[in-house]
Design a protein around this nucleic acid. Structure first.
Lengths: 340, 340
DNA sequence: TTGTATGCGTTATCAC
DNA sequence: GTGATAACGCATACAA
């Protein structure tokens, strides 16, 4: 028993009123006779009329859709971002189309192109690792499509941005280690090109120097932030050279867990002998033994601010291109657990 | 310098050919003069013409969009499903609109309604815990919109389904424990109403009885599968009563980790004294100490099969309502690590 | 080979 | 208070 979809026209025919009157009645226009309106509403309900949103959007030259482009979805932080943005948008009756780039620039460009073709009302993007120059973003902005960068941004684009205050966060984490009496603090950092990695390193460095400790180049090593085995090996090498290390500040929770694993294997106690602090507050960090001290990046707030900014841009679209762009910083929280 | 979006009409005007010719040229129709086509393509490229997909879809009565409704996004398994489906769909130039329900029936209904209004070509859904009766799904199916249930399904609906072979998986896990010489195996199960929980319990039970061990009601307790503290407390109570337990099969990795944590706190060695097997193969399970033996649910394969089924249904939409519906089972893998 | 006309479902304008 | 008509951008049946 497949009921067919019914349109305004069907209502109009059935009631003997014009299409335009039905439309007006449905949309609460004032210039329609109360009794007519009642009739229309009644039949619409009976026949389970659902407006064809596709047609509405087309007519109104809006899509009520925003695009969300990011490196990954199967990722504790990003999946929280996706979930939050989708939920916030749904409150405004906006749909979200998500496109992962898998850190690939070509995929990023493709995704943006698809979104533009779909006439999305706006775009939220977190850049891939491969993205050095933001030309493709600027093009889109020039098309008059509001776009906001978040989390992984480019310093080279004149666009609105929302970022984690990585530098402050890292500084806070390291100051915490120092307050625990630690003096020889190692840092497991990420790529030399990643802005997050750079900022966390800078925060580390300034915490060290600001507190009167001496910054030692040797105590900073580069790891693959999401590869536990590689991180463990790298840390093992460092610790072999410098077993006077009494604390570790790692760029991610995974890298921190890698360090803990290595220390455990050498029967070094965490935190009494070596303290470890991670970054991100992934779910894992509360499930390890010892539970990990880390920085919470406040994914929801990142999502909220980004969506809010985009939403504002969409609402004031007329003068979007000319408006001053801003960068918003999201505050982090130091979550002190057992590893420090 | 905000370039405006250009349409077929603009090309038509600029070239002095009709709109339909331009359209035909662009879409590779054979009945258009090669030189005309060349002209059109050239200008389209120069002016960076992008077809308005919204208009195309409207005209073609298709949306090239599918809906994906599921309990959560910020979840290791589901986020992998989302990522996989989005990626598979993008290869077919299909966009995906994701809607989390947060295990809430009302949200689930709302999400479906929005998707229907948007004229999505099809819907993939994993039900909320609150969903007992699938009437709202059947309604949609009756509207002629292809819909496929996956992972969390209802046995009461006459629709296509893709599910994890939970029962087999659980049996496999428990047989593994038995093969390790374990004889007093506890099971931490979930809700009595959840189909996953029921099937995993049944698999547990049949492994026990099939191998000649005696099934003891007392060794099966209910936990909140994603609450580590509650799970730990519940297991602690059980273990106090029955410290002859030599193995645990838990409904989730979290519950398994809870058990391990409790055992560790009592200085019971895992796995020599008590073996533990989880379920899901979340990222955490390879990061704990000891690393967790668990069942991998093969999220990608679940996504692939679900998308494939939906895609087939969309392509053969004409006789969708009448076609025989099927249930597809996704095979799992036992990942043996250090905890067993 | 090209162009004209029509319509997809809806909203908005402007007569009546 | 109501309805005829045009338009959104595109694809297509049909006429030229």
């Amino acid at each position: 028993m497949s009921s067919k979809k019914i349109s305004i026209k069907d209502l109009s025919n059935a009631l003997g009123v014009s299409v335009s009157t039905v439309s007006k009645a449905l949309n609460g226009y004032p210039d329609v006779n109360p009794s007519t309106r009642k009739k229309v509403m009644k039949l619409a309900k009976e026949l389970q009329y659902l407006p064809n949103q596709q047609a509405v959007n087309f007519r109104k030259k809006s899509s009520q859709i925003i695009g969300l482009v990011l490196p990954q979805i199967n990722h504790f932080y990003f999946s929280k971002i996706v979930e939050s943005i989708v939920e916030l948008a749904s409150e405004d009756n906006i749909s979200v189309i998500v496109r992962p780039t898998f850190e690939n620039l070509e995929k990023e460009k493709m995704a943006l192109l698809e979104l533009v073709k779909l006439n999305v009302d706006g775009i939220l993007i977190s850049l891939s690792d491969e993205t050095r120059f933001p030309d493709h973003l600027i093009e889109i902005s020039n098309l008059g499509i509001p776009i906001v960068e978040f989390d992984k941004i480019s310093k080279l684009s004149p666009l609105d941005k929302v970022v984690t205050s990585d530098r402050d966060a890292a500084k806070k984490a390291v100051e915490h280690l120092i307050s625990r009496g630690k003096k020889t603090i190692a840092h497991l950092r990420g790529s030399l090109l990643s802005q997050n990695s750079i900022d966390r390193f800078l925060g580390f460095k300034s915490a060290i120097t600001d507190s009167g400790l001496t910054f030692e180049e040797e105590l900073v090593i580069q790891v693959l932030p999401n590869n536990i085995n590689e991180s463990q090996r790298s840390f093992a090498r460092l610790y072999k050279k410098r077993n006077d290390i009494d604390a570790v500040f790692a760029i991610t929770d995974i890298a921190a867990i890698a360090a803990i694993r290595e220390l455990k294997s050498q029967s070094i106690d965490v935190p009494s002998q070596v303290s470890v602090v991670g970054f991100s507050n992934w779910q894992i960090s509360s499930l390890t033994t010892p539970r990990l001290t880390t920085i919470d990046q406040n994914a929801f707030e990142m999502a909220r601010a980004s969506y809010q900014k985009l939403s504002d841009n969409i609402k004031t679209k007329n003068n979007y291109t000319s408006r001053e762009k801003e960068t918003i910083f999201i505050k982090t929280d130091l979550i002190i657990r057992e590893s420090s």
